[in-house]
Design a protein around this nucleic acid. Sequence first.
DNA 1: TTGAAAGCGCTAACAT
DNA 2: ATGTTAGCGCTTTCAA
Lengths: 351, 351
Amino acid sequence: MAGIGEVAKAAGVSPAVVSRVVNGDTTLRIAPSTRERVLHAVSELQYVPLHAARALRLNIPSTVTVVIPDTTSAIYSDLLHGIETAAMERDLVMVLASADAAVKRPDWIRRLAGEGRSDGIIIQPPVAMTRRDVESLATLRVPTVAILSGDASWPVPTAVLDDEAAAAAAVEHLVAFGHRRIGLIGGVRDFPSADRRRRGFEEAVQRRGLPREPAWMTDFGYLSEDGRLAARRIWSTANRPTAVVVANVNAALGVLAELHELGAQLPQDLSVVAIHDVWYADTVWPPLNTVQTPMAALGSAAVGMLFNGIQESPSHIRVVDPPPKVIVRASVARLDETATVPEEAGMRHLG
Amino acid sequence: MAGIGEVAKAAGVSPAVVSRVVNGDTTLRIAPSTRERVLHAVSELQYVPLHAARALRLNIPSTVTVVIPDTTSAIYSDLLHGIETAAMERDLVMVLASADAAVKRPDWIRRLAGEGRSDGIIIQPPVAMTRRDVESLATLRVPTVAILSGDASWPVPTAVLDDEAAAAAAVEHLVAFGHRRIGLIGGVRDFPSADRRRRGFEEAVQRRGLPREPAWMTDFGYLSEDGRLAARRIWSTANRPTAVVVANVNAALGVLAELHELGAQLPQDLSVVAIHDVWYADTVWPPLNTVQTPMAALGSAAVGMLFNGIQESPSHIRVVDPPPKVIVRASVARLDETATVPEEAGMRHLG
DNA sequence: TTGAAAGCGCTAACAT
DNA sequence: ATGTTAGCGCTTTCAA
């Protein structure tokens, strides 16, 4: 409630002095006693500068907005930490908005971010979002970067993971455990990150000279229910794979649940490894092997793209460091009789 | 980039007219052709009013900030939807902040909310937050309501669930399935919501005349790891219960995982029902029985407390509607030999 | 070492 | 039917 004027009056100085003291103006020459009085009045009246007024006067970025399909998905846990840390370093406030709202009310992102409330937007376009929708983001007068699911051809700058490497790491992990008949439970077609994971999978399979079987590959999506569908499909094929790579950990949970209901013995009947690590991966049964992806680094990079100044920011980056890391739990069976490949060899040459 | 002045110039009118057209001033009498020109200029220049300037000029609430310990916990999924829906009805933007930040930088909440960026705060005080911290929230010049874990004695307004009823519903559910030897895997002591669930549990046990056994009750906390600890403790007691109520679904995941590792057959060896429903409750094995709590209603109520005007807002409310609902899946075994209580009777008189 | 004054972009009361 | 003006709270030359 207290404004700078009241503080000034209480301290017996002008508003200008209060402003300079509060903002720690180093060029300011001031009598220690005066400074004291000001500081005292500030804490007495609990003065906090009104952001709207500063924002109007100065033109300093202060807020980064992140829009993700589901704020309460553990998948984004590391991502958000990465963004928040990078934002704090730049003294920016991170604000989170669910894409739900954006979908229900198409004007919502504009409302949230297009009124100068935000100085940068980090968005993962939900599956439902068309290229046109993305394009319209570019018309917001706010720097925007799309994450996770775009590619270099997009009309806005993008930052993505090395999805090929993640999928390849999953395949190599299975190979190291002796598997050769490997399927893919993938994301939907024409969704860039899903396409990349599929490509990484196929290249790794080919490189290893593994058998390829169309019936072992599905593309229902990233959700738990999608995983259930895929599990039923693959379980019912005549000539099952011994293992599957699941493109998303949430889908993998559905896969495990459905396989249980189908009466499968896990991991003997089917081994599972999923992309992305989340805290509850070790609470399911069997505890799920995952490929940990550099989500925190991605978040940090996205913040950098927005606020590092134009010249240093390419319009498309792929975060390759740290490389994907396999977390071994208990959802992959060791197939000793076929284990011709030494475990080490599997992981090395991925780069 | 384009300001109201440029739009005015482009349309050949004064800024005042633009303002009134844009804001849909109903009292405004204007020539259709003029309005047309204004609208055209607005869309041509992609004019969006600068929020900071409006906020400075008007004094209209526009933002509600919610602070929760972990933004990426599915527990809060319904809560956030409830808040968001209620906020949208009032044309408020919902902004999410993690308590992580608040803990790392104690001034962060002030920064976020004390600068007038927020017109209302909904916070779940994390376990680490002392009563003094909560008290200091009251000194922010922003209306604040604490949710989920407070009680009527707190220095800020609070909105909580009917935790007693939720715990009682869990007990009644187990009784209806024939259980009599029932334990509680509770939250930490002196955490209000945990204390209430414990009380609800104990009252229900007493009401039903069930055996009480201190070794069947633990109080490690709400997290998965806490659940693991509790599961080991209870599994190793000489005279085990046949079922446990777990005060939090995340802890329950830990319980299930640990029991598996201990070699337990579920649910035959131990039945489990947890408070709060989340999407992945049906992806674990066995699919977890839960008590669904009215989180969305709670969120909605909290928004109401903040923005409904003082007279209608008591400083403490308990959301009792809809009542807790048991979601039956497969983690509770039916004990037919002891099933003396008709299933229906169990749920009725809870109110 | 401090103060006075202008102005950031917008809206509302008051002209015309 | 439209324009003029003042001012929201703050920062920053520029002056004293």
